[in-house]
Design a protein around this nucleic acid. Structure first.
Lengths: 245, 245
DNA sequence: CGGTCACTTGATCGTCTTCAATACCAGTGG
DNA sequence: CCACTGGTATTGAAGACGATCAAGTGACCG
C-alpha cells in the first residue's frame, strides 16, 4: 500500500536507425523470432523511449494501444483497489514483453522502478507483423504460457505460504534470475523498495523488514545494504520457499 | 487443505466418429478456429474420455504429454505444498483448454469435481496441427492472455482482499459465468465444495462458511442449499468484490 | 436407525497488521 | 564540517482478522 506517483509525463522518444540490430534485449526477447535480415521492419515500427524512476507508463483501464519491450531497467506491474491497496503482479526486466491482452484496455499499470529503456509498438502494427512471422506468434504463446505458470506459483505463494516462506521464495527467485547479470552467485541487488516487495508478496512493509531481520539473525542471509542481499544458505532457503520449514 | 484422492484410475476412452462436429464444447472452445470442413483432422487426433468425480487426470510434475479440452462438467486445477496445503488455481468448465505450458511437465494437477467429459490430444499432434492452422494458434494466444488477466485478478484477491471481499468476488464470478447456462440470472449452483472454495480463495473452510452465513444474515445472498446460491444484492456485492466495503 | 460426511457454529489462539517511535542515509545549505 | 530535511527502513507494543481446535447439526444412505 503506497502513495501513487503522478500520471505519466510523456517521455523522450528519439528516432533510431536500426536500433533493433544492436538492442541488448534482443537475445532475451520475443524479437529474436524475427530474422536479422528482416530486422528493419521491426525497427520501423518501434519507438525507443525512456522512463524516469517512478513514471507510470501503462495505466490500468486506459485503452491498450501499445506493446512494450523492456531493454534495460526494472518495471513493476500492479493493480489497485479503490482505497489504495496495491498488489504488484510482477517485476519486468530486460527482454520482458508487456501489454499482452485481448481486452481493449490495459489490465494493470506499469511503473519504472529505476530508469527504464523500452521499445513501444503500436498494437495494430504488431498484429500485421505477427501475420507474417508465425514464429513470433509462437514465441508470444510460449511467453504467455510461461507467465501463466509463474502466475500460478504466485497464487500458491499468496494463498498458502507464510510470510517466511514468501520471503524465501522471493529471494530465491531474485537470485535465480539475477545470476545472469551477476558476478557473485550469492549476492545480488534488490532494485525494488520494501514497499514493493510487501505489495508483491501480499504483506506489509513491517512484516517484510522483520522477516528479513530474522532470516539474517538465523544466518540464512546477509543484508550488506537495504538494497542488497547475500544468500548464505541457498539450500535451506530453497526448502523454506517450497514449504519445508 | 484437503485429503487427496487416489492416483488416476485410467478412464474409459471410446473411439468416436466425427465427434467434434457435434461437440457441445466447440462453440466455446479453441476448436472453433478449425473450419467445419477440416474437422475430421481434429477428430482423428482427439480421444473422448470421461473422468469420475474425484479422479485426478493431470498430475503436477508428470510429463506433459497431452492437452485437454473440457466438453462437460467442472474441473479443479491446483498446486500442493509438500505438507498438503493446497491452492486451487482455477476451475475449468465447458470449452476450457488445459495443459498449455512450455515445460516438459505439468505445472498443476487437475481433478474432476463432478463427472467430466473431455477430449485428450497428444501434444505432438496438436503442434503439427497448429502449423497448419495459424488461426488456432492465435486463439490459443488469446486464451492464454485472458487467463493471464484472470490470474492477475486472482493475485489481487489473494494478496489484498479481505475474506468478505474474496467471497463476494467469487460469487460474482460464478454468477457471471453461470448466466450462460442458467435460467435465473440470480440463482446458480456451486459444483465445488466449501473446501474447494476455501483453497481457491486462500481461506479455511470455516471462514468460508462463516462468511457465507454472515452475507446471508445481512441479506446480500440466499443459500437455498449448501450447493446453491441466490444473489439478492448484486450491485452491493459487486462493490464489495472490488473493495468498496 | 446408526453411520458417514459435509457443513455450520462456537471458543481460543497466533500470525500478521496497525499504529507509533526511532534509526538510518543521502542530499542540501549554513 | 555539521545541522537540517525528507524519505526509507527498522523496531516495538497493541490489536484484529482469520486460523485452529472442538463440538454440534443436518442430509443422505445403507
Amino acid at each position: 500500500m503506497l502513495a501513487l506517483s503522478t500520471r505519466p509525463v510523456v517521455l523522450d522518444p528519439h528516432a533510431t536507425v536500426n536500433a533493433c540490430a544492436s538492442c541488448d534485449a534482443r537475445p532475451h526477447s520475443v524479437c529474436n523470432a524475427i530474422p536479422d535480415s528482416d530486422l528493419a521492419r521491426l525497427t520501423a515500427i518501434a519507438t525507443v523511449t525512456h522512463a524516469q524512476p517512478g513514471t507510470t507508463f501503462i495505466q490500468e483501464g486506459d485503452p491498450a494501444t501499445h506493446f512494450f519491450n523492456i531493454s534495460s531497467g526494472t518495471v513493476r506491474m500492479y493493480k489497485l483497489l479503490p482505497d489504495g491497496r496495491r498488489q504488484i503482479t510482477g517485476f519486468a526486466g530486460v527482454g520482458h514483453f508487456l501489454g499482452l491482452a485481448v481486452s481493449e484496455t490495459y489490465a494493470f499499470s506499469a511503473e519504472a522502478i529505476d530508469t527504464v529503456r523500452f521499445c513501444r509498438f503500436s498494437r495494430a502494427r504488431v498484429r500485421t507483423l505477427l501475420d507474417d512471422y508465425p514464429k513470433m506468434e509462437k514465441r508470444l504463446l510460449e511467453v504467455a504460457s510461461t507467465e501463466l505458470v509463474a502466475a500460478q506459483d504466485q497464487m500458491l505463494l499468496l494463498g498458502r505460504k507464510t510470510a517466511r516462506e514468501r520471503l524465501a521464495s522471493f529471494l530465491m527467485m531474485q537470485a535465480r534470475q539475477g545470476v545472469m547479470c551477476q558476478t557473485s552467485r550469492t549476492r545480488f541487488p534488490l532494485p525494488m523498495s520494501r514497499g514493493d516487495i510487501a505489495d508483491y508478496l501480499g504483506l506489509t512493509i513491517e512484516t517484510v523488514s522483520r522477516t528479513f531481520t530474522k532470516l539474517r539473525a538465523e544466518g540464512f542471509i546477509d543484508i550488506p545494504s537495504a538494497s542488497e542481499i547475500t544468500i548464505r544458505a541457498p539450500v535451506a532457503l530453497e526448502g523454506m520457499a517450497s514449504g519445508l520449514s
